[in-house]
C-alpha cells in the first residue's frame, strides 16, 4: 500500500496537504459560502453577484448529528471487502454557518460520537485499486491534540 499513489476521489473539493481543507466558494458581493463549489452566480436570491472566489472552509466544526451504516451501500460506492460499518457525520461550521457531511475517521469509536462534539478535517482512504489509493475528506476527533 505504501507504494500506491494517493489521489483525491474527486478533483478540486479539498486540499491534499497536512492540514487539509474543504474548498468551497464565496460570493465576492454578499459573502455567502457554498459547498461544493458552484459554477457561477451567487445563489442568495437577494444578491446579484456573479463572481465567486474559491475559499478553504474552516477545518473544525461541531457535530450536528451522526449515524453508522451497517449495510454496504450500492454502487457507485466502492465498498471494502469484507464490508466494515462506517459512520457519517453532519458537521456545523460556525464561521460559514453551514452543515457539511463527511465520513467519520475509522479510528473514532462511533459510541463516543455525540451532538456538539468538536471534530477536525482529515483525509482518509475511500477505496483502493491496484495502483492508487483514492482519498476523501473525513472527520476526526480533536480531543487528544494540543
Amino acid at each position: 500500500m505504501a507504494n500506491k499513489t494517493r489521489v483525491p476521489a474527486v478533483e478540486g473539493w479539498f486540499t491534499l496537504d497536512d492540514e487539509p481543507r474543504l474548498l468551497g466558494n464565496r460570493c465576492r458581493k454578499c459573502g455567502s459560502y457554498f459547498f461544493p463549489k458552484i459554477a457561477s452566480e451567487c445563489r442568495n436570491p437577494g444578491c446579484d453577484g456573479t463572481e465567486l472566489d474559491e475559499v478553504p472552509l474552516s477545518n473544525r466544526g461541531t457535530i450536528w448529528s451522526y449515524t453508522t451504516n451497517h449495510y454496504a451501500p450500492p454502487p457507485p460506492y466502492v465498498a471494502a471487502e469484507p464490508f466494515a460499518p462506517y459512520s457519517v457525520a453532519a458537521v456545523e461550521l460556525s464561521q460559514e454557518k453551514l452543515v457539511v457531511l463527511g465520513q467519520v475517521d475509522a479510528a473514532i469509536d462511533p459510541a463516543t460520537l455525540h451532538v456538539g462534539m468538536e471534530v477536525e478535517l482529515t483525509l482518509g482512504t475511500l477505496y483502493e485499486d491496484d495502483e492508487q489509493e483514492y482519498v476523501v475528506w473525513k472527520w476526526k476527533g480533536v480531543a487528544n491534540r494540543g
Binding site: 454578499c30 459573502g31 459560502y33 457554498f34 460559514e96 454557518k97
Partner: peptide, 8 residues
C-alpha cells in the same frame, strides 16, 4: 453534501 450558508 451541505446546507445553504446562513452567514449572510
Amino acid at each position: 453534501f451541505a446546507t445553504d450558508s446562513a452567514a449572510v
